[in-house]
Amino acid sequence: MRRNRVRFEKAGANLLLVGMGTPGECSDFKNKFDVPFPMVSDPEKKLYQAFELKQMPPWKALSPALALKGISAVARGHGLGIPVGDVRQLPGVFVIDRKGSVAFSWPADDPSGHPSVEEILSAVDSLRRPAK
């Protein structure tokens, strides 16, 4: 996302991150990773719930496959730390048009998945097309 900031700006949409940390924790996150977008602090997960994002089942949180992904992330230099937020909460991506309608919805079923930047940009492009 950060690497594609210019593409999102050219596409004509704002980009907003939502995290489960306090304002201070989210501010630290933004500084640490040089995040150029505004970030919502949602420690009570009100926005996560409003968008009906799911929680990972406990058995999946303990799966070997997820453990391997965590090891892989550490190997890529992401480091280990105390998690900020609910570790079972799944992520998601939504595109909202200028009338407030949800034009693109991607609630995760799995913690490792995410839509491609191209999918998201295509949804943003569709906001500029005239309504049929």
């Binding site: 996302m1 999102f8 004509g12 949409a13 704002n14 980009l15 907003l16 991150l17 939502v18 995290g19 489960m20 940390g21 304002p23 924790e25 989210c26 501010s27 996150f29 933004k30 505004p38 970030m39 919502v40 602090s41 949602d42 926005l47 996560y48 968008f51 994002l53 730390g81 105390i82 998690p83 900020v84 937020g85 609910d86 570790v87 909460q89 799944l90 992520p91 998601g92 991506v93 939504f94 595109v95 909202i96 048009d97 200028r98 407030g100 034009a103 913690p111 998201i120 943003v124 906001l127």
Partner: peptide, 30 residues
């Protein structure tokens, strides 16, 4: 209304009403 990392409260619609919005929900971090 959402609370931003600087502690300010802003209606969510302020982000979509002029340009549209990509809203990205993160997993836990740290």
């Amino acid at each position: 209304s959402v609370t931003l990392s600087d502690g300010s409260a802003v209606p969510l619609k302020e982000f979509w009403k002029n340009r549209g919005l990509v809203l990205v929900f993160l997993r836990h971090f740290g």
